[in-house]
Amino acid sequence: MTDTNSTERPTVLVPVRVLDGDGIPDGVPELLGNAHVVVLGYHVVPDQTAPGQARLQFEDRATDRLAEFATMFEAAGATVETELVFTHEKQQTIDRQIRDHACHAVLVANATRPPERVLVAVRGTIGSSRIARVVAGLFADTDAAVTLYHLAADDESDTDAETMLGAVRDRLVDRGMDEDAIALEIGREDGPRAAIADAATSYDVVVMGESEPSLATFVFGMAADDVAEQFLGPVVVVQRDP
């Protein structure tokens, strides 16, 4: 799939609480101007309420808001699809939409200024082609400077890490990015989440891979959400190959 549509826009899912949320934060439509955006308007109802019951009452208002959001993304240059879902389980709905639309990435939407400095957290070779696909798709035509960041393990030498990041840079260049706009950085601190959030203070956008489904992420929530919380800017979470 990645190869056949590699020249097309990456598909990015933007989940929004359609009725009681704050809408689309500033700068987010511009950030995704080169993407195919799936705007997922969701409304979570308690167990006592049938989702269909919420639909009867709120569908019109939700449809109107969703149309407004779609217009914002279109105005920024994106192609747009919208989905409206009434649900008991937010995460289940988001996961299904990622599958149904074969999304390359999910955006944790926070306000941003026009993206000038993009931090891309690379964990390893696995999954890096999808990260490259998304990063090049979003930023190849822009003036944004991209920093590829790798948090090295204790037994990993700088040379190994540089080789790995260099390979990702080559992929980006293959996909039309300017080599001069790409910097490499190797971090050596404890705790990947804190380190990523720390390094991100001087950037506008973070792109990172989806964390492994483990007991830790199940209990504490997705790592990306933690990052987004500390970072306060938008986080693009690249999905594993389906």
Partner: peptide, 14 residues
């Protein structure tokens, strides 16, 4: 198997 689909909206089965 996962949703009830209306014209404008989907209802998630949970």
């Amino acid at each position: 198997e996962e949703t009830t689909v209306h014209e404008e909206a989907q209802l998630e089965r949970t």
